[in-house]
Design a binder for these strands. Structure first.
Lengths: 199, 199, 199, 199
DNA sequence: GATGAATGAGTGTTCATTCAT
DNA sequence: CATGAATGAACACTCATTCAT
C-alpha cells in the first residue's frame, strides 16, 4: 500500500501529462475521465491526486505549458535571423514542424480553449496573441522592406496562421507527402499569400 | 397538462435545435445537458423526449443536416457558373458568407466530429469530402485552363479551405472590417495562394 | 424506471426529512450519507435529488424550519397570556413539551449549528435570538411587576434556557419521572432561579 | 529527512492535541481531516502517524484525558472542604473556571461523545457519572444538613449541571461581564435553584 | 522521525433516459 | 403532449491509512 520501490513523482507527472494529452486529443477534455487516466499510468484513481490538481486546473496548466513551450522554441528558432524573408521561411518551417511533431498538443491547444475558466482563458489567449504578434511583425517588416504587399496586415496574418494550423487537421506521419516536401509547399504558399514579387 | 395553445411540434423542434446549437457552440456537446436545453425552450426535462431523439442521435442528425444544407446552398450558388475564376470567386464568397452567417453551425460542424459514433462520423465525413471535392475541382479546372499553377492539388485545396474556415475563429459581426471588405480581401488571398498569373 | 403508481412528492419529502433528522441526531450531519438516507425512504441515491437540494442547503432549510415551527408553536401557546407568572409557567411547560416531544429536532438544532455556512448560521441564530428575546421579556416583565429579582437580566435568561434545554440531554420517554411531574419540578426550579418571593 | 533539531516527540504530541482540539471545536471530529491537522503542526500527513494513533483512538484518548484532568482538578479544588455550602460555592467556581478556561475542551467533551465507539463511549460516560455523583453528593449533603430543599435529587443535580455547562455556549473572554462577576451571579443562581433558605 | 507516494473505500453530485399520470 | 418522479451509471474529489525511502 505504501510507496513502491523506484518511483519518482516527476516521472509519473510526465507520464500523466502524456496520457492526458492523448485522451483529450481523442475524445476531448470533458470526455476524459480521471479513472481511465489513472489506469493509463498504472495508478488507482486516488493516487492521481498526488500528482495532479483539480481536473480543471490541470487543463489550464497543460495548455499554458504547451503555449509557453511553443513560444520558447519559437524564440530559439528565430534567434539571429534578421532578414524578413528568412524569418518567414523559418517561421513556416517551425510552425509546421511543431504542429506535426506535436500534433496532439497543438490540436487540444486550439480545441479546448472553451473548456477553460474565464481566468485561464484570458491567460492563454494572451500567450497566443504574443505568438500572433511575432508573426505579424514578420509580415510587417517584409512589407516595409518592399518584399511583399498585403491588403490588411491583421487579417493577412490571421489568414497565414489559419493556413498553417489547418495542417494538423489532416496531417498524418505516414501520409503521402514527407514533412520536408510539405514544408517546401507551404513556404511557397505563404510567400504567394503575401503577394511576394517573385515566386 | 395538455399542449398549450399555439405551440406546434415542428416549432418546438426548431427552437430546440437553435438552443442546442447555441449551447454546443459555447461549451461543447458533452457539456450540454438536456435539462438546461429543455429549460431554454420552456419545457421540463421529460417533455423534451417528445420532440428529440437520444442525445447522441440528435447530434448526428444536427451535424448531418448542417452539412446537407451547406451542400445544397453551395450547389444553388454555383449554378450556371462555368469559368474557373468566376467559380473560385463565388466559392470564396459563399464560404465566407456561410461561415460568418452560420458561424455557430459551422464551428460545431468542425468541432464536434469527435463526439459522433463511428457510423455517424463516416456519414458526415463523406459529406465534407463532397464539398472538398467540389472545391478541388475548381482548383483543378483553373489549373488546366492555365489560370494558376499549384504545386500539389490536394494540399493546396486543403490549404485554401483552412484559410477560409479559419475566419470563423475570430470573425465578429461588429468587427473592424465589414463582411464585404473581408470577402474582397480573401478573394485576393485565394487567388494569390493558387499562384494566379496576375494579382 | 419511470414514476411508480401512487407516490407524491410532498410525502416523500416528509419521509426524507424524518429520516434525516433521525440520522443526524444519531451520528451527526457530517456522518449522514445520502446513500443511506435514500435507502431509508426506499429510493436510489439519484432519486433523492428530486426532493432534496444540496446536502448543505438541506441542513440549513431543516434547521430553519425547525426554528420557525418552534417560534410559531410558542406564539400560539402564549396567546392571550398577560400575567408574567402565568407566562413563565406556560413558557416552561411549552419548552419542556417541545424539547421532549421533538427531542431530536431540538438536539440537532443546537448541535449542528457549526455545520452551517456562515450565511445559514446567521439566519438561524437570528431566529434563536427571537426566542431568547421573548423569554427575556417575560423575565423582565416579572421583575418590573416585583414578582422576582434577578442580578443580571441577560445572564439569568440564558441560564434559564440552559437549565431547560439541558433536559433533552438525558430525557427518556420511559424514564423514572412522567413528563407532567418533570414540568412541575422545572416550573418550581425556574421560579426559584429568578428569586421569586414565595416558593 | 531526519528529525529537526530541538523537536521532541512529546512536544509534537502536545501541539497535535492542541491543534486537534481547536479543529474539533470549530467543525467537529468528523470534519477534522488529518492532512490539515498535520499542517497545523508543520508536518506532512505521513509523519503524523509517528505521533498519533488511529483517528478514532485518538479521539477516545483525548476525551478520556480531558475528563481525567477535570476529575483530578476537581478533587484538588475540593480538598479539605467539608461544609456543603462551601463545597457548593467551590464547585460552581471550579466548574465555571474550568468551562471558561478550557472552553473548547469541555465543549468537545460534550459534543463528540457520539463520535466514540461503544467501548470508548462507555468508558467516558463512566467518568462523567463520577463527576455527576460528586455534585449530587454535595446537593444531598446540604439537603441533609437542612441548608436547602430540592424536589428531586437527581433531576435537580442535572439541572444544576445544565445551568452551569450552558455558559460555554455563549461565554466570551472579552464579554460584557468579567469571569469573577459571572461566578458570583451563578453561585447565587445555584443557591436559589436548590431553594436555600436565605439568598 | 520525516516524507512522498500509493491505495481503497467512500461521498456528494450530475445526467441521460424512462414512464405513470 | 407535458410533467414529476424514479433509476443506474457515472463522475470528480476526499480521506484515513500504509509503507519504502
Amino acid at each position: 500500500m505504501g510507496r513502491p520501490a523506484g518511483v519518482s513523482g516527476a516521472e509519473t507527472m510526465r507520464a500523466v501529462r502524456k496520457a492526458a494529452i492523448e485522451r483529450i486529443w481523442r475524445h476531448g477534455f470533458e470526455a476524459m475521465n480521471l479513472r481511465d487516466l489513472a489506469a493509463d499510468v498504472n495508478l488507482r484513481l486516488g493516487s492521481l491526486y498526488n500528482h495532479v490538481p483539480q481536473k480543471q486546473e490541470f487543463l489550464g496548466n497543460l495548455l499554458e505549458d504547451i503555449m509557453l513551450e511553443l513560444l520558447q522554441d519559437f524564440a530559439l528558432r528565430m534567434e539571429g535571423l534578421e532578414e524578413p524573408m528568412a524569418r518567414l521561411s523559418a517561421f513556416v518551417r517551425f510552425h509546421i514542424e511543431w504542429h506535426t511533431a506535436r500534433k496532439q498538443e497543438t490540436f487540444i491547444g486550439n480545441m479546448e480553449l472553451r473548456s477553460l475558466t474565464a481566468e485561464q482563458h484570458g491567460r492563454i489567449i494572451g500567450l497566443r496573441k504574443d505568438y500572433e504578434a511575432q508573426v505579424r511583425a514578420i509580415v510587417a517588416d517584409g512589407q516595409k522592406a518592399g518584399l511583399w504587399q498585403v491588403d490588411d496586415l491583421r487579417v493577412t496574418t490571421l489568414a497565414l496562421l489559419s493556413l498553417l494550423t489547418g495542417i494538423s487537421d489532416w496531417y498524418r506521419e505516414d501520409g503521402r507527402l514527407g514533412q520536408e516536401r510539405l514544408i517546401r509547399i507551404y513556404q511557397r504558399l505563404a510567400v504567394r499569400l503575401l503577394g511576394a514579387k517573385s515566386s
